[in-house]
């Protein structure tokens, strides 16, 4: 029997940037929300993580090797609403530490 792949999930990934040869560099992370069509949660995570594995590598203008690697699969949640509706909630989560959340959303990179 063919597996159904018409369920829609949001997979939340945390990805980390490092520089080869500079372990003391300032940290940079990316939180990525992926809309995935899959048969179940496990399949959704598999498809989502394929997008960031193997690690993405490239050179910056200073000749450094920049490496983006998956740090953590943060969450996976089925989207119950029609994601193409005029207004659709595709992901939500509850939390209890406002200060931690605030420091995340207010973060700014250095201006050097």
């Amino acid at each position: 029997m063919e597996s159904r792949t018409d369920n829609i999930y949001v997979v939340v990934l945390a990805i980390e940037r490092t520089f080869t040869g500079d372990p003391d560099a300032d940290s940079l992370f990316e939180e990525s929300f992926l809309l995935v069509r899959a048969r179940d949660e496990e399949h959704a995570v598999e498809l989502a993580t394929q997008r960031v594995q193997p690690a993405l590598q490239f050179e910056n203008q200073y000749g450094e090797e920049v490496v983006w690697t998956l740090r953590r699969v943060v969450d996976v949640a089925e989207v119950s609403a029609d994601p193409l509706a005029p207004v659709a909630e595709i992901y939500s989560r509850f939390f209890g530490d406002w200060n931690a959340y605030d420091s995340l959303v207010e973060w700014q990179p250095e201006d050097d």
Binding site: R17, F58, E59, N60, Q61, Y62, E110, D112
Partner: peptide, 13 residues
């Protein structure tokens, strides 16, 4: 910001 240059793929500059 200038700091973006360390994160940016040089091939696309």
């Amino acid at each position: 910001k200038g700091s973006i240059l360390r994160e940016f793929p040089t091939q696309y500059l």
